[in-house]
Nucleic acid binder design. Structure first.
Lengths: 97, 97
DNA sequence: GTAGATTTGTTCGTATGTATA
DNA sequence: TTATACATACGAACAAATCTA
């Protein structure tokens, strides 16, 4: 399953919204939309852009943080991890918390 | 992480500007750009040189004051503390008399 | 003493972003 | 979804002390 970077969230589908968003973010990082050590869109922006609740956005971010794709700096933002191999869709980089 | 003495501030990065500046000042002191008991650049000069707000500059200075690298004299300036090794990480050098 | 420039000290307001309830 | 808290950053203004002339 591949998510388009500009895809919309399907609230009716079998895949939960937060997993959809995680896939979208993964795709946006993969295409180099956000550079390493640069911030991805803020939670507020993602909320507005995809019409999701904040908790849902945070859950999605938590997923890709777990994957090592990004890291969150408290009171600062979420940043693209330096030099990471972006997985196609699903991946287990081995290291999870 | 090491800061170049002439580095520019990255407002987009995960490290807050005031911490970046603190690192830069640390580096400039370490290279002997400012001698012990001699004033470092004034807040206004640092504001102009790095394009930061004064509050941000003051915050950075507060960090290295806390580390004992410099000391501030009201209405005079901020001076390099006498005889102390610049710490790699942290330090609590004795008081300068 | 007066005047001006410089420098640190302090406070207020606005904005952004994450953290938590 | 809403509200509050905390951290950070910028901008502006004024106070107080120092130095120079």
């Amino acid at each position: 399953m591949d998510f388009q970077p500009d895809a919309e969230i399907d609230h009716e589908g079998p895949v939960t919204p937060y997993r959809q968003l995680a896939g979208i973010l993964r795709a946006r990082i993969a295409r180099g939309e956000w550079q390493p050590n640069k911030p991805i869109s803020s939670e507020t922006q993602l909320v507005q852009q995809y019409g999701l609740a904040r908790t849902t956005v945070r859950r999605a971010i938590a997923v890709i943080v777990e994957e090592g794709l990004v890291f969150t700096v408290p009171q600062r933002g979420t940043y693209v991890a330096p030099q990471q191999a972006v997985p196609d869709d699903k991946a287990s980089p081995g290291q999870a918390g």
